[in-house]
Nucleic acid binder design. Sequence first.
DNA 1: CGCGCAACCTAGCGGGCGCTCGGCTAGCGG
DNA 2: CCGCTAGCCGAGCGCCCGCTAGGTTGCGCG
Lengths: 212, 212
Amino acid sequence: MARGRGPDGDRSTAERILAVAAELFARKGFHATTTREIAAAAGVRGASVYHHFPSKAEILYEIARRTMEDLLAVGRQAVASSAEPERQLRRLVEWHVHYHADRRVQARVADEQLDALPPARRAEVVALRDEYEGLFRTVVTAGRDRRDWPVDDVAVTTFAIATMASGVGAWFREGGRLSPAAVASIYGDLAVRAVGCERSGAPLPAAGAPPR
Amino acid sequence: MARGRGPDGDRSTAERILAVAAELFARKGFHATTTREIAAAAGVRGASVYHHFPSKAEILYEIARRTMEDLLAVGRQAVASSAEPERQLRRLVEWHVHYHADRRVQARVADEQLDALPPARRAEVVALRDEYEGLFRTVVTAGRDRRDWPVDDVAVTTFAIATMASGVGAWFREGGRLSPAAVASIYGDLAVRAVGCERSGAPLPAAGAPPR
DNA sequence: CGCGCAACCTAGCGGGCGCTCGGCTAGCGG
DNA sequence: CCGCTAGCCGAGCGCCCGCTAGGTTGCGCG
């Protein structure tokens, strides 16, 4: 039967499990969250969770993989949106921050809970993450080589900017003082100034939402 | 007896427990670490741990509190070392990074595992952390008001810089390509440029180690 | 209608967890 | 030389974890 559907129950049970598990993993961590809690939050009994997922770890994997795939797609479009390194970096950071603000729960899980995955699954997600970080590295390298950004060390600088931009997930709350777009713009400014390119630059045509 | 002491056994058992627990908490997280693992790594049996600490959570608390107290002391000296906001910010970031590189295990635990503490203990450590973050906020505010740094939003900027500087604990390894001082200097540059103060500035008399 | 199966349930297994109990032992003060 | 105690241990308690077995329900469909 399809009991979960209808006016009150939203989406399918599997999707509801993913949503509430992400919330719990983000708030308490993977190991501190029990399958019974996930089940209760999703409105089913413990055993029913295992009708949709083979293990607790696979729930985490599904959340993390989807999120990294989304982020990678957004990042690729950010880089493709211009040939100018400064614009590429600003868009990368803005969309990264925007995504982390919009979907902060999933993004935090994907950033912080990977160590809880079994090695093979962890490797899959880390591969996606490395590919994503490669976008930042490429753009910073291009800025240094073609636009003379005063970047001491590409690897360190890249990682520092990515870390900074991900940090937004730790404090951002929907409906707070600042909109996702406003926060994204602030982080974009910080990033382009940090790498030392001169122009303060108009914050791009629109600091708008990432695609999808 | 004082069995643990001597040529091979280092320090007291209590200190050894704190050291190996920090290592395990940093690598696998608090909830994924068992008291039996801590005991084995410290060279004692499980029951002996409870001769020195009343609970696993109190071990985490001791690590986190000590670390935040150290960091706060270092940060206060960084601010006191100059009256010029740019120098204060650079020193704050450099010493923060240097500390995170030198004691990355403890620092990561203090940054990332606080949610595992019981509420009262968590509040104590968070109070120290808030005081520490206040140093950054004060310096950024001073730079904006007295030196016209183009800071859009003090709270967001402060948090972004602190997040960036803490991120060094995720990748730094002793004996790698860069020394703690070199990494600290790079992060110092990134921070002062990010807030938009003009001078590239000599990297201060010495980007040396923090006190203590 | 009545079969098949997706969805969900109740009940509970096996195991590892944090932690405790009571006892042994070595070194120290008197 | 004896008694005290800090330090450590073996044994194990009680709990709750991830997960499973097997049954029930009711919709989709021929």
